[in-house]
Every structure is written in structure tokens, then in C-alpha cells.
């Protein structure tokens, strides 16, 4: 399936959970969060939340900042 990740097209395995997706991109779930189709997905939902084809995903993490 194809999603839009941070504004760019991205191929993913079907039915991937958010936890697996975040860990595959960052190596950890610490410090990251996701917004799917403009909804902030609560951390507690990540293990059961399965991404679907065509969704817009923002994967956001902590960076240096004042």
C-alpha cells in the first residue's frame, strides 16, 4: 500500500501497525508521535492501529530547539 509520509509518497507493507511503522523508521517509539489524516493518534492506540492505503501520515520527533 501507499501512504503519504511527511509529504512524500511511501510504500508500506499492508496492515502494518503504528508501533511497527514508527519503530521501523526511528528504531524506537521514544520521542516520536504520529498524526494520521489530521488526527493525533494517542500513544496507547499505536499497537492496534493499522495504517491504511492512501492515508496522510506526519511522523514527528523531538529535535534541538529553544
Amino acid at each position: 500500500m501507499t501512504i503519504t509520509l511527511n509529504g512524500e509518497s511511501c510504500e508500506l507493507d499492508d496492515d502494518i501497525t503504528l508501533v511497527a511503522f514508527i519503530e521501523s523508521r526511528t528504531g524506537t517509539t521514544r520521542g516520536s508521535a504520529v498524526v494520521v489524516d489530521d488526527e493525533v493518534v494517542p500513544r496507547g492506540s499505536w499497537p492496534d492501529y493499522r495504517l491504511r492505503d492512501g492515508q496522510r501520515v506526519e511522523l514527528i520527533t523531538a529535535v534541538q530547539g529553544g
Binding site: 508521535a33 529535535v63 530547539g65
Partner: peptide, 11 residues
């Protein structure tokens, strides 16, 4: 403090 930004895969 930290800021929140899109993941940069190159970091």
C-alpha cells in the same frame, strides 16, 4: 527544551 519537527531520516 526541545522542538517538534518531521522526522529527518538523514539524522
Amino acid at each position: 527544551t526541545v522542538a517538534m519537527r518531521r522526522l529527518d531520516p538523514s539524522t
